[in-house]
């Protein structure tokens, strides 16, 4: 996945600025994430177990879905001068391998005195809201 690097300073950022991208959860990412995290929970790998839990089939890792915000935040808004210091996210729908997701972030507050940028975020599949939440990023330089 290629994301354009936009080097923004704190004074370049404004409330209401937003960016988005579309990305698919691939089988390769899914398997890499399993090895990376050691999470071999059957809800992700065993169809019958996932169905017993009420899902149509095995579901993707929630944190794999969430991890893709790192690209938007680090590369575009707030950009490479920032680090994440706090986040919260609520999942509303499961994600399945092969799903194409749209990631959106929008600046909702800038606390200039402490160089903090607050962003609202959401993940959408077609018109369905997969989940949403908030990131707080500190502009270190």
């Amino acid at each position: 996945m290629e994301i354009e690097l936009l080097d923004r300073k704190l004074e370049d950022l404004k409330v209401g600025q937003e960016t988005s991208m579309t990305s698919r959860i691939t089988q390769q990412e899914f398997e890499t994430f399993k090895e990376l995290t050691g999470d071999k929970a059957p809800v992700h790998w065993k169809d019958s177990f996932a169905k017993e839990m009420g899902y149509a089939s095995t579901i993707s890792y929630g944190l794999l879905v969430l991890s893709k915000f790192s690209g938007l935040l680090g590369m575009q808004i707030p950009g490479p001068r920032s680090v994440i210091v706090q986040t919260q996210f609520k999942w509303k729908l499961p994600v399945f391998v092969g799903d194409e997701l749209t990631y959106k972030v929008r600046i909702s507050k800038i606390a200039t005195a402490v160089r903090l940028v607050v962003l609202q975020c959401e993940v959408v599949r077609n018109s369905d809201l997969i989940g949403g939440g908030e990131f707080q990023c500190l502009m270190r330089i």
Binding site: V85, Q86, K109, A111, T112, A113, V114, R115, L116, V118, Q136, L138
Partner: peptide, 24 residues
């Protein structure tokens, strides 16, 4: 340091203004 950021942002929300870097 991180809770200090939370504190400043929460105080701004509570009192309805923003601090300047130099002030704090």
């Amino acid at each position: 340091s991180l809770n200090h950021i939370n504190l400043i942002v929460s105080l701004e929300t509570e009192f309805g203004f923003e601090f300047d870097t130099a002030e704090i």
